[in-house]
């Protein structure tokens, strides 16, 4: 499986990753409408991204470390995902082959046990309707892979191949 790797020391807090995430998850363009006529999701320009659209939240978070540095919080698509364990609707499932935690908003019952159960605090209810979970989807729709990684100007984010499961991984406490 592929995982987004993070070198916090290289993060400059520019939040390009957050913008890229929003851009990848904005509503699909209406064909023939300005300003990106006919663009696919992948082609939509950040120039036309509505930065104040409350329905479009970034799924990654950059925190200041209080010492002048930054700590990027990105979904790890854990081998033993606590969000999936807590999901009572089946909306969150881990695709074992791809090593990715998938979310099906149609199945989700908005209990938000996943929000409570992620030890790293990644999932959140959507800010507008609070009826869906906002969580990284690894940009599965995009052939080029996760947009955040491609948008990072400092090399703080990259993709690496890791073992799909870690059966000997010590149980998460």
């Amino acid at each position: 499986m592929k995982r987004i790797f993070i070198d916090p020391g290289k993060c400059d807090g520019c939040m390009n990753c957050s913008l890229a995430c929003m851009n990848a998850h904005r509503a699909a363009p209406v064909p023939g409408t300005a300003p990106d006529p006919g663009a696919t999701v992948e082609e939509q320009s950040v120039y036309t991204l509505d930065l104040t659209d409350p329905t479009n939240e970034a799924r990654n978070f950059i925190h200041a470390d209080g010492k002048g540095g930054y700590l990027p919080l990105f979904c790890r698509h854990c081998a033993r995902p606590e969000c999936v364990s807590s999901c009572m609707s089946g909306a969150l499932q881990r695709d074992q082959a791809a090593g990715q935690v998938r979310y099906d908003p149609e199945k989700c019952a908005a209990c938000f046990m996943c929000v409570m159960n992620c030890p790293y605090g990644l999932p959140k209810p959507d800010q507008l309707t609070r009826s869906k979970v906002v969580k990284c989807d690894f940009c599965v729709r995009l052939a080029a892979g996760p947009s955040c990684v491609r948008a990072c100007p400092t090399g703080a984010l990259w993709i690496e191949e890791v073992a799909a499961d870690t059966p000997d991984l010590e149980d998460v406490k």
Binding site: C11, D12, G13, C14, M15, I62, H63, A64, Y70, P153, T154, G155
Partner: peptide, 28 residues
């Protein structure tokens, strides 16, 4: 607004031309 762009903080984001914004990194 607590997370600030490091390029902006350091003054190394240049938007003076259409090639920009250019930002300074070890590789650039």
């Amino acid at each position: 607004q607590s997370v600030k762009c490091g390029f902006g903080l350091q003054g190394v984001c240049c938007r003076l031309c259409a090639n920009g914004p250019c930002r300074i990194t070890p590789k650039a």
